[in-house]
Each structure stands twice: as C-alpha cells, then as structure tokens.
C-alpha cells in the first residue's frame, strides 16, 4: 500500500466514524483531536476499522501513533503487509 492509499484509507474510515466532521481540510501534521474533535471512542473505532481493513492490530499503547494523519501513515506503512 502506498502512503496515499493508507492516507485515503484512514481518511475514509474517519469519515465513517465522524460523519458530521469536516474531514476535507485536514492538515496531516496537526493533531486530529484538535482538528475534528476525535475522542477516545473515535480513536478506538478507528483502530477497529483499520484492523478490519488491513489486519493490523494496533495495541492500546500505540494509540498515540494515530493522533495525526502523518504519524498514522508512518506507523501503518511497515505493518501493512505487501
């Protein structure tokens, strides 16, 4: 998976988790919690969704890696097979 594909995947899942949030103008370097008001339930749902889509099981201790789009891509890239 390319970085863009991973980014699109994460963004797509975010859209489902937070349908009422403005996901269009997200800055990949800025904390998602600040930008679209993600809470712990949303982060957990994101982890579940990524697991379902890619098979990557993100342990709870790694949730902080999901806080920006860039960090999420960097974290997921080596873990997604192929």
């Amino acid at each position: 998976m390319t970085d863009d594909e991973i980014k699109a995947l994460v963004l797509g899942e975010l859209k489902k988790i937070a349908p009422e949030a403005e996901t269009g103008g997200i800055d990949p370097a800025v904390d998602l919690r600040e930008q679209i008001d993600l809470d712990s339930m949303d982060i957990l749902n994101l982890a579940i969704a990524i697991h379902a889509a890619t098979g990557v099981d993100i342990p709870e201790s790694d949730y902080p890696e999901m806080t920006t789009l860039d960090r999420a891509v960097a974290y997921l890239r080596p873990r997604i097979k192929k």
Binding site: S40, M41, L44, A47, I48, H51, D57, I58, P59, E60
Partner: peptide, 12 residues
Amino acid sequence: LKRPVTERLLYA
C-alpha cells in the same frame, strides 16, 4: 492487552 481490538474496553 488480551482482548482483540474489537473487544477492547474504554475506561468510560
């Protein structure tokens, strides 16, 4: 730690 991601709990 023991739960799969789909079954994890929030402290809430």
